[in-house]
Write a protein that binds this DNA or RNA. Structure first.
Lengths: 220, 220
DNA sequence: TCATCTGTTGAACGCATGTTCAATATTCTA
DNA sequence: TAGAATATTGAACATGCGTTCAACAGATGA
């Protein structure tokens, strides 16, 4: 069903599309560009995927699959509270950069994937609370959601982060110890001790949460 | 120099462009759409701004100006560690949505603005450390950068955040106490106490930072 | 061997886009 | 008020896009 080559033609087109979409966005990538990158004709892209939109959906699903695999493998390694860590440990297709692009332009598949990630994070955190590795909270779901959004948001803004602290979190920087400490050390600091003193929190809580405390009976 | 209407034509075009760019992205917005929204002809848009790209730059600069103003005003109010809070307190919602869109597609003006925000955050944090409101750290710049990225990343992913916890942080949710507690309470919790226990941090620090500790002499 | 089907091509079509331009309306200046 | 400068229009143009389609190549199966 395929030639003696590396990947099948369909796979080559899909991979080229993922790379181009990740680099220049969906709107910024033409079918002709993808076809050239895959070494085929524009017509063949349509023939195999039906339309640019369906190609994009295929990419979404494929990348989502990769991420699910990677995430499953990383769950046990202890890095599950930082989604981006999972990508760095594996040398996958530019799935991380693709996700960083598509997280913003609202595909339903990506939304589904984000929901899954948060759900998994919740489970992971719940286990961590039981084993005494993670502090309990009244807002489990919201905390998991916010931590996930922070991780994914950092992924989306990886270019800014790289410019700011010299670490590209879409690549595997475990080889560079200076980068590891620049990125991981402050995060671990905040994740364990925070950065606001008790006085400050009381002031801020009074300002923001105070009127809401009695309405806090039902969460989601 | 202008009609008896509200704003000048140039301002009306610029504002329409900001709104449309924010809603559908730069690539997803045609000059004709902007012209229609502003109630003018396509040719006039080009006549006033030269090209779509120059119009986009004008929007970048204008929004950056708004944000600088808003930020200056919010510095004193205590919400400076959360950039998005500044937008909500002022009524500059389209600016927030515009920033959320353009943070991803790498305009130099936005990069400049992000750098400014981090620099300001650093100053603010340094002051907070002196007055005992913020805990000191060895990685001041990196911590300020990461906190800023978390805030901006949440802004960029506001649609996901809204789907996840029901709070739209690009709108003023101060009227809704439940939303305030869903969003602010977990953040304040993490910002003050973190969520990892000391045991966990030691394990993670050993795994990620250990080999880097001696190379940690110079930061930025 | 012949017919059939799938993989593949590349020219062509229709459309939306950014931009140009000559023409017209309006405002400003003196 | 006359003339110049500016604001504004809308048709037209060139380009690049997603997609279609007739044609061909190569494999498959009877």
């Amino acid at each position: 069903m395929r030639s003696t080559d590396d990947r099948s033609t369909v796979a080559r087109i899909r991979d080229a599309a993922i790379t181009e979409f990740a680099a220049n966005g969906v709107d910024g990538t033409s079918i002709r560009t993808i076809a050239t990158a895959a070494g085929v004709s524009p017509g063949l892209v349509i023939h195999h995927f039906g339309s640019k939109d369906e190609l994009r959906v295929a990419c979404d699903e494929y990348v989502a699959g990769i991420i699910r695999d990677v995430k499953g493998g990383a769950m046990a390694s202890g890095g599950a509270f930082d989604v981006t860590a999972a990508f760095r440990t594996v040398g996958e297709i530019p799935a991380a950069k693709y996700l960083a692009r598509t997280l913003v332009d609202g595909s339903p598949h990506v939304a589904e994937l984000v929901d899954e990630i948060v759900t998994d994070a919740m489970k992971y955190v719940a286990t961590g609370v039981e084993t005494g590795m993670i502090k309990p909270t009244e807002h489990e779901w919201e905390r998991a959601a916010i931590l996930t959004i922070w991780g994914l948001g950092s992924l989306v803004l990886h270019e800014h982060l790289e410019r700011l602290i010299g670490v590209d979190i879409t690549s595997d920087f475990s080889a560079d110890p200076k980068a590891t400490s620049a990125y991981m050390a402050p995060i671990l600091e905040i994740y364990s001790n925070g950065f606001l003193t008790e006085t400050t929190v009381q002031i801020l809580r009074a300002a923001f949460v105070d009127a809401a405390t009695e309405a806090e009976k039902e969460s989601t």
